[in-house]
Design a protein around this nucleic acid. Structure first.
Lengths: 203, 203
DNA sequence: TGTTATGTACACCGATCTGTGTGCTTACCG
DNA sequence: CGGTAAGCACACAGATCGGTGTACATAACA
């Protein structure tokens, strides 16, 4: 009561204001977009006074950059660290996305901010490159002929699915997954089986 | 002089204010984005008084929708109406984009407006569907096994290239074109000449 | 000539936005 | 206890936004 619940005034601090601000950002920026989410609304949602928010972040720009920096775990690592899958399956698993996922915030940020020099835009670039690199690593692990190329191609498919889902309001990831399957089959030379869908991998 | 050049006051009307407004929209909305371009700036660039702008368009929303509606000719028809190319070549030509093209305004609008009900968002959807349909038509003309699927796949590649180009600030269309070539080769059974290795599907 | 569109120039409204300034309140810690 | 850090409530500044109101100027047409 004294710790998590608020007294009507004074220090509230249930697990840090900063956390609540970033948590609210995750929700509001994705739901409404960055530009359409004002600091007033955001602070209200985070149950944080505006004054406090500006003591944790020098401005909205920094907040946005920090907000973007908190995404890897769920999307990136969540896919690549699954040791129960073969490299090949891991590549395809990148397209298995829960159908309600609001949609790649990096593209949204790059479009909304519209300034390639903005820290968030720079981080979005870095992130996209990192994803392509991890895909390339996995492709190499899977024995692809040209891992870098395959990684870049799969990254493009993911972005295409994200953008198209956003514009059409309909899930485009199955289509992207189908293309990915073709590309992977074409790029990985042998591996016992063949092209088409191959159920399991021996080891 | 009396017609095109302006007297310091009064009616200017060199080829219609509406045209100048839309023309300025094309430039500013693409350069700066929609939300970051105010009506004041836009009217100044169009050399049109703000009052006049609001007599031609009921509001910015309508202007944005109209702005989007003026893009087909250059992109869509420009590719599909080329009778000097085979259907196959036409499919690939969709990825031949002048390297400086600012980038698909439909995706930008859908992200910036962030409201699927916005007239511009609806038109963006219609347009994307139309492109996929024309790609499917061409794919059918080229003899693809599943034209709708190929059309949807190629459309996704285009969107992926657009989005990725935007985020990474580097041309992603060559990568998309490479994927397209693979998909087309896989989907079109015969077609005399070819590159890649295609030993399968005799008929 | 006068009328009617069409347009200009410019001030202005209300809303909203990022960001501050100020004073008060509470928790923690020595 | 007293001090300090963290936070709150709230008003407010300054800018910008979409959109109007008003009075005036010009071109085309009768």
């Amino acid at each position: 009561m004294t710790e998590l619940e608020k007294g009507p005034k004074g220090r509230r601090r249930g697990r840090g204001a900063r956390e609540r601000i970033l948590s609210a950002s995750q929700q509001l920026f994705r739901e409404q977009g960055i530009n359409r989410t004002g600091m007033d609304q955001l602070c209200a949602a985070a149950q944080v006074s505006k004054r406090t928010a500006y003591q944790h972040f020098t401005g909205k720009d920094e907040l946005v950059a920090e907000y973007l920096r908190r995404f890897d775990p769920s999307v990136l690592s969540g896919v690549f660290d699954r040791t129960d899958l073969t490299p090949r399956e891991r590549l395809l698993a990148a397209f298995d996305i829960p159908p309600d996922t609001p949609l790649c915030p990096y593209i949204g940020a790059a479009v909304e901010l519209h300034d390639p020099q903005h820290p968030a835009s720079q981080y979005a670039r870095d992130y996209k490159k990192a994803v392509a690199a991890r895909l390339a690593d996995t492709a190499r692990e899977a024995g692809a002929a040209d891992p870098e190329q395959l990684g870049e191609q799969l990254a493009l498919l993911i972005d295409g699915a994200a953008a198209r889902t956003r514009v059409l309001n309909a899930d485009a990831f199955p289509t992207a997954a189908a293309i990915a399957a073709v590309l992977i089959d074409n790029a990985i030379p042998t591996t016992a089986g063949d092209h088409r869908r191959r159920e399991e991998v021996p080891s």
